[in-house]
Nucleic acid binder design. Sequence first.
DNA 1: GGAGTGATACTCGGATATCTGGTGTCCGAGTTTTCGCGG
DNA 2: CCGCGAAAACTCGGACACCAGATATCCGAGTATCACTCC
Lengths: 166, 166
Amino acid sequence: MKLSQGVEWSAHSAVVLAGVPPGTVLSGADLAEFHGISESYLLKHLQVLVRAGILASVPGPRGGFRLARSPDGVTLLDIVRAIDGPEPAFRCTEIRMRGPAALAPSAYRLPCLIHAAMGRAEVAWRAQLASVTLTSLAVALAGSNPSAVEKAVPWLQEHVRETRQP
Amino acid sequence: MKLSQGVEWSAHSAVVLAGVPPGTVLSGADLAEFHGISESYLLKHLQVLVRAGILASVPGPRGGFRLARSPDGVTLLDIVRAIDGPEPAFRCTEIRMRGPAALAPSAYRLPCLIHAAMGRAEVAWRAQLASVTLTSLAVALAGSNPSAVEKAVPWLQEHVRETRQP
DNA sequence: GGAGTGATACTCGGATATCTGGTGTCCGAGTTTTCGCGG
DNA sequence: CCGCGAAAACTCGGACACCAGATATCCGAGTATCACTCC
């Protein structure tokens, strides 16, 4: 089980976007430079987040990305599901219904126990991720590492862009 | 995030092996036939379980596999970690320490918050898997689908093999 | 001087190569069994 | 009939191709800006 690299990049980018004022955007190039990562590859992931309704994009010069909803309404689970896909990690192929000792399919109305156990584990995993919002991350960051925030804010103010209001 | 196919096969095979009497083994070919799956590929995973100390193998004619410890002592987490690897799903590359707004490394003694949140989620996931033992699975199966067990037992008795005692 | 208009520059968006890890299979090492032979 | 020995058969073990998905990048579509021209 391995999570895509894009999850980390997307989560950090979303936290940064949660920290810029409403009505402003950051370009993909700025987000990539801020984190010291590849711009092209980050764009690929940001586009996925846009398609998932987590970010909104503004095209053209002085365009960029912003959160599509309130930072309260975006959780780590949303980001993971957008990048990594919504399908569960464990795929039950129902091998219990195969082989020489199998019964008729009607005998397997109750779910496969291994499948069920895996499902419970994933529910617990998702519940933890769903309890973390961008707001909670930003607040915790301000509390745990205020100097990092103090250094990031001026840089962001230098690169943030006002957007015309539709 | 995607779990290997081998996790499902290994888990089912382990449950079957938990159901055969102590001092007996099942060959890889029998386990594969019982589940209707590829023998060669299942063997690959069974060997990993042997290396992880979950199964023990007996070579030569009338050889096969058996559990290396009591079914009480084998959890789903053990199997997942053996097949899928022990490293966590989320890999933090510390991008917070990069880019133009980064501070000196000494300013990042506290863990990355996104990393920490992902870690809590994985702990919850593993805790669920660790709470499921082969014994609990076997007991629950006997309760939820006794007819499947009744049909499987004769087949297994037909194919199980006594092992000489060292 | 102001408005209109065309060109321009900048941004996101999707299509395209590359590469690692899971998937699938095969042949060889090792051991037990078994068959044949001799006593 | 019994014991010994060698050959054979069966099993696991690891090494070898193949393929899907993640990784990484590039060029094109679309739009706001800006400069220039004309009124």
